[in-house]
Simulated assay, not measured.
Amino acid sequence: MIPQRIVLIGGPGTGKTTLLNALKSMGYHCLEEVSRQVTLAAQQEGIEQLFLTEPLLFSDKLLESRIAQYFEAAKIKANFVFIDRGIPDVSAYMDFIGQNYPERFTKANTTYVYDRVFALPVWEEIYETDNERYESLEEAQKIQKELLNTYTSLGYDCVEVPKTSVENRVNFILQQLNP
């Protein structure tokens, strides 16, 4: 049995990682965001922000990692696997910055399909930047719009997760998955 692949999407700072950690603490299988790993690896090579300096190279590495996660999720023995960001996020970010990208990005979006998508809205009260998250709140809102456009254009029904406590967000998602 292949588990349902459940993707959590949203602009930077919307609480995806916090929500994923809460699900993980409840025993659910979760796959973390891989962009931080790509960014940290580049920083160890002396490139402070690979996405800003070489967006296509960064996005290629990200696409490769997200496709690997897609296959990793299929091997997990569970009903659900929660994934922090999906493959379409890569092209959404490239569209956000106005960067052209190879057809393989678009093909990956339609080849590797997720079962459900939950969108966490930009939430000013919880938004903060850090070493890997450099976007302003306004940029986060524009990224959010691009993400929703990308996923809906691919036929996904993006269920918006309410702005509420982590516990209530978890319960909302689980109720949607187990009606």
Rank of each mutant, 00 (worst) to 15 (best):
A41P: 03
A42K: 01
Q43A: 05
E45R: 15
I47L: 11
E48S: 13
Q49L: 14
L50Y: 00
L52A: 14
E54I: 11
P55F: 09
P55G: 06
L56A: 00
L57Q: 10
F58G: 12
S59Q: 13
S59H: 00
D60S: 08
K61D: 07
L62T: 05
L63F: 06
E64S: 13
S65L: 00
R66D: 05
R66V: 01
I67W: 00
A73Y: 00
I76Q: 09
A78C: 03
N79K: 15
N79V: 02
N79H: 14
I83K: 00
I83W: 04
D89V: 08
S91G: 03
A92E: 06
A92Y: 03
Y93K: 04
Y93M: 05
M94N: 00
M94I: 06
F96N: 04
F96W: 12
I97Y: 05
G98H: 08
G98R: 09
G98I: 10
Q99V: 08
Q99R: 13
Q99F: 04
N100A: 15
Y101C: 07
P102D: 13
P102C: 11
P102L: 12
K107C: 05
N109S: 06
Y112F: 13
Y114G: 11
D115Y: 09
R116E: 11
V117S: 12
F118C: 04
L120M: 11
L120K: 08
P121C: 03
P121F: 10
V122N: 05
Y127D: 07
E128I: 14
E128K: 13
T129Y: 06
D130R: 05
D130S: 10
D130L: 04
D130H: 01
E132N: 13
E132A: 06
Y134I: 15
S136R: 03
S136T: 15
L137S: 11
E138M: 06
E139F: 09
A140D: 08
Q141M: 15
K142W: 01
I143F: 07
E146V: 09
L147K: 11
N149I: 02
T150P: 05
Y151N: 00
T152P: 02
S153L: 07
S153C: 07
G155T: 12
Y156R: 08
Y156K: 01
E160R: 04
E160T: 14
V161F: 03
V161C: 02
V161G: 05
P162W: 06
